[in-house]
């Protein structure tokens, strides 16, 4: 399959995504933020970074890039879209995913390994069994997920919570396990249809066996399997 990786001014994880896709035997190419043609791509990736300097709010300006109107159309047609870190922030600003990402509770930029628990969800980008633990790094300043209680209940009911932060043994700390203070330990969510996925952790960084952990590969292999099934 062929991934399209969108580059905004200030994106900085696009090479990692391309590398991860190649390692897994897929094609991947860059899409410039001014482009409006996504034909030829099977899935779209909004990578991490600091699009437009994170000015106003993270993702607030990138949302209005010419390419985003096309990404919205692609998603509405059922095309798979993933937003990683800053990409997740852009997806919430574009209202492709509910809620918002606030500054980390402790005010510090956090860069470290996180343990994530796979939840039962409708996400097309995650076919690992519920309860599976994944070690994937986080690297952000605004990863403190928030939404209103009604939205949380609705997401819970329709299987939109895909990944939660947890302790290394899969348990939940008494005061929560999200290093950034995220509501209900939420690390990744999808839309109701399951084709749009946003997460703060960086799966693309743990795909190449050279780095020692390959827990991020499942994100890319899940969508590839899904697309192969539906043809």
């Amino acid at each position: 399959m062929r991934f399209g990786v969108v580059i905004f001014p200030g994106s900085n994880c696009e090479q990692d995504v391309i590398h991860a896709a190649h390692i897994l035997g897929h094609e991947a190419d860059f899409v410039w933020h001014g482009d409006t043609d996504l034909s030829g791509f099977d899935a779209i990736v909004l990578p991490g970074g600091f699009s437009y300097g994170d000015y106003i709010r993270c993702g607030a300006v990138a949302r209005f890039s010419p390419v985003m109107a096309e990404v919205v159309r692609f998603a509405e047609r059922g095309g798979p879209v993933i937003g990683i870190c800053n990409g997740f922030q852009i997806l919430t600003e574009a209202h492709l995913l509910p809620g918002a990402l606030l500054r980390n509770r402790g005010l510090k930029f956090i860069c470290r390994q996180a343990t994530l628990r796979v939840e039962e969800s409708a996400c097309q980008w995650m076919d690992a069994a519920p309860g599976t633990l994944l070690r994937i790094p986080i690297n952000h300043n605004e990863g403190n997920y928030i939404c209103d209680p009604d939205t949380l209940a609705r997401m819970e009911a329709s299987g939109q919570i895909v990944l939660r932060y947890c302790e290394s043994d899969g348990s939940r700390a008494e005061d929560g396990s999200a290093p950034n203070g995220a509501l209900d330990d939420i690390a990744g969510i999808c839309n109701e249809r399951g084709n749009v996925f946003g997460l703060m952790p960086h799966p693309e960084r743990v795909v190449d066996p050279a780095v020692g952990i390959t827990d991020g590969a499942v994100v890319f292999t899940s969508i590839a399997r899904r697309l192969a099934e539906v043809g």
Binding site: T92, A100, C147
Partner: peptide, 8 residues
């Protein structure tokens, strides 16, 4: 549209 995010 831009200067504030009505969600939060």
């Amino acid at each position: 549209k831009l200067l504030a995010n009505p969600v939060i």
